[in-house]
Design a protein around this nucleic acid. Structure first.
Lengths: 211, 211
DNA sequence: TGACGCTTTATGTCTAGACATTAATCATGG
DNA sequence: CCATGATTAATGTCTAGACATAAAGCGTCA
């Protein structure tokens, strides 16, 4: 079926044969045909509606898997030595809107050069055990990933010019372009953590491949 | 099962009951249990090996769906008026490494302000019909997604400072930060098109949500 | 001890059939 | 002509059972 769609035998917009016909044509059970069609739906190639049948969908906005790996591995797979420094660790009192939070600022280095500046707030109401961690020798991300599985993750990727303080920390000229990955994670609607990861533009990019 | 994993009833690393036990416990057929487990595998929550059983895996690098929509819709859903200008259209002769290509430079505007500068090369060996298109009034992306489904897509997101020419086209001060989405698409290993989409950093970001 | 092959136990996949659900379509009455 | 309800044709989901396949573990023999 995949081949037919790619080859244009089933052109965009066309109804594809219904399940019973496909069962006959491929001499497979309906369950098998169903699985195949479901897989095509997941790949965004067809659309199925009860009673109306299945249609080849115009290839739309391409959805591909974006995976944001652990920064340590990211650096090590590039063959650099990984370094880590905790720059700030402070408990912010509760204020309107947000509860008590743990603020962390850390620097991740590749071969001694600044690679990522991580500014993170951890919601202590949801994760009180974070207050007992020092985060002196390892970044909070590795701890968090181990500690709690998040149920919802929002990632935003943007660019920005470095302000003076950030430029100094990343050892860059002021106003250098930065690539910023911001992420919020939630567990059942309770915010867990909010992080902004800032990278010198020339040393980082986000890559995704889809088939 | 999802609840149990999230609640830690099935802790990370633990073997989960085998299919026959789950069938008994949930009073469902094995096929149904299988589907549930497969879905957990897809979500990256468990790992299954024949003979060895299924295990809860440590939540790793989060993978989420990244979708890059059509620029026109992107602009219109934000409530801006969409504008389009073709700045350059030129056939590049074949040279070593690459075949004949069609180079396009276009500007997409939101309410008359530059929003995206698109520099695109289309491989004319794979898509000769592109040469007959003028791309005067609509961007090549919409034509391309209609014309050929790609089988492989590589997307890279990066940041960069605007050079003089680019800054002028986007009506920005020189050296302003840009967010750049670069994409290469292939059909069965033949390159189709290669595009760099440049955005003023303060007007664009890439967002992804995963559950 | 170690290589090899057999057994066993788990997952992987399929089949055939049943019933549920949804929504397009048609028929009917005001 | 329109609204409303009945029909029906498609997909959605499940069950029970079968066989395939991979790999862990065991036994045997050189």
């Amino acid at each position: 079926m995949l081949r037919r769609i790619n080859a244009g035998e089933w052109p965009v917009g066309a109804d594809i044969p219904n399940e019973v016909e496909l069962v006959a044509e491929f001499s497979a059970a309906r369950g098998t045909i169903q699985r195949a069609l479901s897989s095509l739906v997941e790949q965004g190639l067809i659309e199925r509606r009860k009673r109306a049948g299945s249609r080849v969908v115009p290839p739309r906005a391409h959805a591909s898997k974006l995976s944001i790996p652990l920064i340590r591995e990211e650096i090590e797979t590039r063959g650099f030595g990984y370094g880590y420094k905790l720059l700030e660790r402070r408990v912010l009192p509760a204020s309107k809107g947000t509860g008590k939070r743990l603020r962390l600022v850390c620097l991740h280095l590749a071969d001694g050069r600044p690679f990522q500046l991580e500014r993170r707030d951890i919601n202590l109401a949801a994760l009180p055990q974070a207050e007992r961690e020092s985060f002196q020798s390892a970044g909070p991300n590795e701890w968090l990933v181990r500690e709690v599985p998040a149920t919802r993750i929002v990632t935003r990727i943007s660019a920005e010019a470095a302000d003076a303080a950030t430029a100094r920390l990343l050892d860059l000229p002021e106003a250098s372009p930065l690539l910023i990955v911001a992420r919020e994670t939630f567990k059942a609607d309770a915010p867990l953590t909010e992080v902004r990861m800032l990278h010198p533009a020339d040393s980082y990019e986000v890559t995704t491949v889809s088939f």
